[in-house]
Write a protein that binds this DNA or RNA. Structure first.
Lengths: 229, 229
DNA sequence: CCCGCCCCTGCATGAATATGCGGTGACACT
DNA sequence: AGTGTCACCGCATATTCATGCAGGGGCGGG
């Protein structure tokens, strides 16, 4: 790993930070693993609780001395990093995981985040920033390399559910539609709203007209797909 | 704005950074605006091209001296920050925008990012980190306060559809459910499948049992929410 | 005062739904 | 051969739905 640039110092985070940050490392390349181990062991306030070359090894031995946070590569022999962190999070839900990898493609970023990673750094990250990111993650943040943060936001924009379509539903219509989405039928919705079934009927016809549908199911589908409620 | 914690220094970014970072400020609170203007004007490598108290004023005058990046609040008199950055990005697509606000709710973060903000900082950000974030944004990054990054990731996970729940639906049941999601009723689904309504009835009862629902609307809602089709 | 909109209620009617119960044949597995 | 599952079909019944038509009161704006 090429060490470049000066280290950052962290800002104050609201979550209490453990006085000692215990880190486990999962990295298949020996020289990188050793380098990381040296960096973490040699920095005040940090300790290295384990240093593994595979996810299998980590899963096998990590419980002997559970860290606050795992620093894991994605490309590993055998089980890959993402599959591994799913299992880690399953076994130790409070365990924090920070990815440290060369991969910066959307899919891996996405999968890692969804699998439970708290942060995602690229391997070119300078040592000082790496240490700071560990601290930030332990403090409740979600450190990402600039390129990763950019991709996350781009993905965000792409994934974003469509803006709420505006069908000009009145407050009562929206409320009734919401009840339908929740599984109510005319009768129970009427009870819930404190009105008669005839009133529900009235609103229903307006809703169906505005949404251009003819059944409650269609209205429910449209409400969910278009995020109307 | 309360200035806390030591400043960070930036890491090397791959995109070429302009030698001078020109910043425009949009902030309604005068003392904060003046403080920011002073901070930026008084830092080597940065210049302040404009300092506005409203989005309207910014939209009116910003072209006189277009900055690299805008530092904008959200809560502003008249047009709010998010509506404003949509217009700014429309007029100046390459203009970078960094939000600086007290709001850290999901909706605003989400709206700001989708409107085109490159980054999102909370107002408690220390001055040095603020400067570094401007630099990072200009360098192509997407700086976010730790809390914001965490929320973005949380939103990310929420937006991502959950993995398909497994209700053990048979192929025909899935097919029928899909037709319901598309708006079919028993009759039209029967026609579509080339079976009798009685067969549809039969499948429906199995579907409802597996999904633990009692109406087609509920089945449709469950199908959409759990991505069964 | 008038108008438009929202919310409320009622009744009627044909169609659709949901559920109960009954049956068959094909296919794979033991 | 026996069993289980899937897909198919049927009938009955009470309930719900969707739509048509009728009416009223409150509130805000012009």
């Amino acid at each position: 790993m090429i060490m470049t640039n000066e280290a950052k110092t962290g800002d104050d985070l609201t979550m209490p930070v453990a006085s000692m940050i215990d880190v486990a490392i999962i990295e298949d390349e020996r020289d990188i693993r050793e380098c990381l181990t040296f960096l973490i062991s040699g920095t005040e306030g940090y300790s290295c609780t384990g240093s593994y070359r595979s996810m299998e090894e980590a899963l096998d031995k990590i419980e002997h001395q559970l860290p606050n946070i795992v620093l894991s590569d994605i490309g590993l022999p055998g089980m890959d990093g993402i599959a591994g962190i799913r299992i880690l999070k399953e076994r130790y839900p409070d365990l924090l995981i920070l990815m440290l990898t060369v991969y910066d493609d959307d899919e891996r970023i996405f999968d890692a985040m969804c699998a439970g990673a708290s942060g995602y750094l690229l391997k070119k990250t300078p040592p000082a920033k790496l240490l700071e990111s560990l601290k930030e993650a332990v403090g409740g943040g979600a450190p990402m390399s600039p390129e990763v943060a950019r991709r996350v936001i781009t993905l965000f924009r792409e994934i974003r559910p469509p803006e709420r379509a505006d069908y000009q539903l009145t407050p009562h219509e929206t409320r009734l539609l919401k009840l339908f989405v929740e599984g109510h039928i005319y009768k129970t919705a009427a009870v819930e709203l404190g009105v008669s079934v005839n009133t529900v009927n009235f609103h229903v016809r307006n809703i169906y007209e505005k949404l251009q549908v003819h059944t409650r199911s269609e209205a429910v589908a449209k409400a969910l797909v278009n995020r109307l409620v």
